[in-house]
Design a binder for these strands. Structure first.
Lengths: 198, 198
DNA sequence: CCGAAGCTAGCACGACTGTGCTAAAACAGG
DNA sequence: CCTGTTTTAGCACAGTCGTGCTAGCTTCGG
């Protein structure tokens, strides 16, 4: 089957157009027409790549989640466990403009997922994966003696994960308050508290 | 000026209709027609109480924020500082169906506030007030010797506030995971960590 | 009982929505 | 060059949207 363009590449470019529309006008204005215009395509052409709007939005949401998780995965291993953990958690927070953009889009999709069954599945999946990642970070700290193994791992996992997402939401809502150094300081303080006593 | 019905009461009832529509269909489906039907009113009648849709949504958002903060305010003072703090924080989390409903509506509004200047102001205001409340809770603990005053108050305030909102978001997204006892356990563990050493 | 005000109801308009559909353009392999 | 497939383009339909507007209904002051 002859294919003149890379289908995945094209769909990715369209998904990025969705993100731009969401950031500029909000998810409720991410119409087929609007996204097509943003992507520089005609309406009919867009519908060749995405048969329905649901499919388009689901793809755009999955894409932003994958991008976040991929960036976490690509964090280089480090001898310093504490530095590694701080780096990974830093990849999840909106510390720069790119990640702020991702965080805003992510929040928009999560809110829509509350009333959209298709998106809800994606939200639950990413929730699962990120929670697991937080648990594994505690294991990394534990191997380096920086996590008190007397603590309840499940509770501490949820605590760390909730802290990160809470910081993210706050930074997105009030950009003036949640500056990058402040978020790093909160994160550092939390990790300090997890260390064994003494 | 003769008034046959209480205006505030009527507007409140309409706001509650907005919340029900948001929970059932999502904020993007909270149309003037849909809300009017949910409230048992005609379209024109609804427009007598709210001239525009923006005014309607802004009122509904302010209403849910006020309701949350009012409930926190009404927490009875207690001799046991720790119990008092746990109770107040518990009022913010979706520990029962009513508060789950509030939390879902709150999240929907916050996400929309990202691209809606009017709602963004409300979101920033509530953010400010709740952050202050968390700081005051730390003061309550400190007066009872349950908060290590050597800690940075601003950092710990943001940490506590982020933890609460993170728990809220997780509970809303994945109701199965974020059960009430689990959230309470995470909160309790966090407060334990804030105590002075020894 | 009457007038005025508060309140309700509903239509109409223009704009925008998602999707079905057809046809032309760009490109592939033969 | 020709043929078949991929890709683009754009119209049409039915539906929903927010809001302006007018008319009728209810209630109250006098």
């Amino acid at each position: 089957m002859p294919r003149t363009v890379d289908a995945g590449q094209r769909r990715t470019a369209i998904a990025e157009a969705v993100w731009r529309v969401i950031r500029r006008d909000g998810l409720e204005h991410a119409s087929v027409r609007g996204v097509a215009a943003e992507a520089g395509l005609s309406m009919g052409s867009l519908r060749h790549w995405f048969g329905t709007q649901s499919e388009l939005l689901a793809f755009a949401m999955r894409m932003v989640i994958d991008r976040i998780i991929d960036r976490v995965r690509e964090c280089p291993a480090s001898d310093d466990a504490r530095a590694f953990v701080e780096r990974v958690l830093g990849e999840l927070l909106p510390l720069d403009d790119d990640r702020r953009a991702e965080s805003e889009v992510w929040l928009a999709f999560v809110a829509r997922a509350l009333a959209d069954p298709d998106l809800r599945v994606l939200a639950a999946e990413s929730d699962e994966r990120l929670r697991e990642a937080c648990g594994m970070l505690l294991d990394v700290l534990a191997r380096d003696g920086q996590f008190d193994t007397a603590r309840d791992r499940a509770v501490e996992t949820e605590r760390l994960y909730a802290l990160v997402d809470g910081l993210l939401v706050h930074a997105v809502i009030t950009p003036g308050r949640g500056t990058a150094p402040r978020m790093r300081a909160v994160l550092a303080r939390h990790l300090d508290d997890l260390r064994p006593p003494g």
